[in-house]
Simulated assay, not measured.
Amino acid sequence: MEKTWEQLQEYQPLVLKMVENSLRKNRVAHAYLFEGSRGTGKKEVGYLLAKSLFCQQPKGYRPCNDCTNCRRISSGNHPDVHYIEPDGQSIKKWQIQALQEEFSKTGVESNRKVYLINHADKMTTNAANSLLKFLEEPTSQTVAILLTEQIHRILNTILSRCQVLSFQPLAPKVISERLIDEGISSTMASLVAHITNNLEEARELSEDTWFGQSRSIVLQLYEVIHTRPTHAFFFLQDQWLPHFKEKEQLSFGLDILLLIFKDLLYIQLGDEEKLIFHDQITSFKQHALTTSTRRVSDQIAAVLEAKRRLYTNMNPHLLMEQLVIKLQEGYKLV
């Protein structure tokens, strides 16, 4: 789905403000480096900037998204907008040289040319050196947009020639609304938006059957701990451990469990608008009445400690058994 300036401005207000200022003052840089985690809109903003430079019917500095040029840029068919990404594991020298050759020619439809290099940190040394020569001798009508998730791997000599724009992690509300717009249920959208601040990962999790089952299993464990504590270890053995086999999977499980206890705390503090498990509100309210804010806080601390110990040499089975014991203490003391 094509994103408008207004939508991207909601996701990355500071970045869009800087791009807007450049366009308004006609001070577009010769080279930009968009850096930030995956799924924060770097490529989308890159294409939006390209459209602003080529749009035939701009609304001020904003592209119309509907003219021939805008549509061709969206589909990757504009002759003066070039997109490069790794050939296998890296961006090779020949890719940069081919780009230089292309740019040595006169523009097909104008003198302006734009190129986007995705995963710029994956350039080979030779490719990076070739690009550096390119950046050192920019033509007035050429704009380079480099995209990276790992700015520390970009050569300082390249960094110094780029205007760096940092893309911030997306807020849960933004991710949730975006997923709901795409047809994801509000229940799942709210959960994944609090599991990751990466839009692409959130989208993948929301469509992952395994993750959907994870939500159900974590809720079941919570219910067992609360209502049938003597069955908790059996549940770990029969349901939890066979599902959360890898450490990364177990980390997701602990993240979901953490959000359950946070919901209990929100209920106790009267912040119900922050709830994530909207479909569990009735039972959560009942549970919140049977324990204190201090005990829920202790349970949150226990889950966080388990998360920390997960990536030591701790045995996952023993880790979960010890966590369950700590979580049950809060209820036994009521």
Rank of each mutant, 00 (worst) to 15 (best):
Y11R: 10
R294E: 15
V164R: 15
D181N: 12
D208K: 13
A144G: 07
R178H: 12
R71G: 05
H243D: 01
E101D: 14
D238G: 01
L147W: 05
D121A: 00
V81A: 00
L191A: 08
E109S: 07
K285I: 02
I175A: 04
G270K: 06
N65T: 02
Y266D: 03
L327I: 00
L289M: 11
A232G: 00
A302P: 08
I91C: 06
I281R: 14
A50V: 03
L147I: 12
I175T: 05
M1K: 10
R71T: 13
N65D: 15
Q163C: 07
I117P: 05
I267P: 02
Y331Q: 11
I325E: 11
L219Q: 15
H82Y: 14
L257S: 02
G41C: 06
N21M: 08
A127F: 04
I117F: 02
M188R: 09
E85Q: 11
A302C: 03
T291C: 12
W94M: 06
M188D: 03
D80M: 03
L241Q: 13
H152V: 11
I158P: 08
I225Q: 06
M123T: 01
E109Q: 08
S214P: 09
Y47P: 00
E2Q: 15
V296F: 13
Q328N: 12
H119L: 10
S74F: 10
I195S: 06
Q9A: 14
K3W: 13
Q141L: 07
K113E: 06
E201D: 05
E137G: 09
V15T: 10
N313Q: 13
H30R: 09
S251E: 15
P79S: 04
T148Q: 04
V15Y: 08
Q237I: 08
N315A: 03
T139D: 09
T40R: 04
S160A: 06
L275M: 13
I276D: 01
V15K: 07
